[in-house]
């Protein structure tokens, strides 16, 4: 029993590596915030653009969505970080991680918002247009406020799953929680840093999960 405590809850090791782990916590938090912001807003913008049904644009949107729904986010991330330099374009590991996860989330978010837009009854559009609202005004003031509510339950789980993928950024050595925990673990030959890392993930994502539950309850009514 004493061995188990030493291995997973070693006070000395934890004290030594806590500053590094807290640094990782800040990086993960920043990554997650950037991924959610990019993914949700880009997805929303793409779905709204798609509503205008401009053939060439829609073809591009659907191609983007299908490519990024298909590729594993780790592949996108590695490609952006290790592949782009061959084309003479070097981006930071942090940016590669944000784009890798954010673009994949944007693809799924676009599908959720688009499904919601098409679920709004045609009569809503007709009522809006019959009172002189333009297509864009009807979309912005009548359809989207309803579509966003419809999309929330379709979106929350996916957002959580993809955003948790910030841990993948350790592969391209973004100094986020897992990256810090792993190097601390190999330096100390002790698993305690990973336990602390797990607790830090909980500290970020438990409130996130709770917030998404609240969103679903608050806005997730079906029309």
């Amino acid at each position: 029993m004493r061995g188990l405590g030493e291995t997973f809850f070693n006070g000395a090791v934890i004290a030594k590596y806590l500053p590094a782990l807290l640094g990782g916590f800040r990086v993960t938090l920043a990554l997650a915030a950037a991924v959610v912001t990019l993914g949700i807003f880009l997805g929303l913008a793409l779905a709204m653009a798609r509503a205008f049904r401009i053939r060439a644009l829609n073809w591009l949107i659907v191609a983007f969505v299908d490519v990024f729904r298909t590729l594993p986010q780790l592949v996108v991330m590695v490609f952006l970080y290790f592949g782009l330099p061959y084309a003479g374009l070097t981006i930071s590991a942090f940016l590669a991680a944000v784009l890798g996860l954010g673009l994949v989330l944007a693809a799924f978010a676009e599908e959720a918002f688009w499904a919601a837009i098409t679920a709004i009854p045609r009569g809503q559009w007709e009522a809006a247009r019959s009172t002189g609202l333009s297509f864009a005004q009807a979309l912005a003031s009548v359809v989207m406020p309803q579509a966003i509510r419809v999309a929330i339950p379709l979106l929350t789980n996916r957002t959580i799953a993809i955003t948790k993928g910030t841990a993948l950024a350790s592969v391209i050595s973004v100094p986020e929680i897992l990256d810090q925990a792993q190097s601390a673990m190999s330096l100390s030959a002790n698993a305690s840093p990973l336990v602390v890392g797990g607790a830090l993930y909980l500290a970020i994502f438990a409130p996130f999960v709770a917030f998404s539950r609240w969103l679903e309850r608050r806005f997730g009514w079906i029309i």
Binding site: G123, Q124, A127, R129, S130, T131, G132, L133, Q146, I223
Partner: peptide
């Protein structure tokens, strides 16, 4: 058309009120 429709009111069978 948006100007035209401003002068023609329409009432639908299904009301089509904005639920939000």
């Amino acid at each position: 058309l948006n100007h035209v429709r401003r002068h023609i009111g329409m009432v639908f069978q299904a009301f089509n009120l904005y639920p939000h």
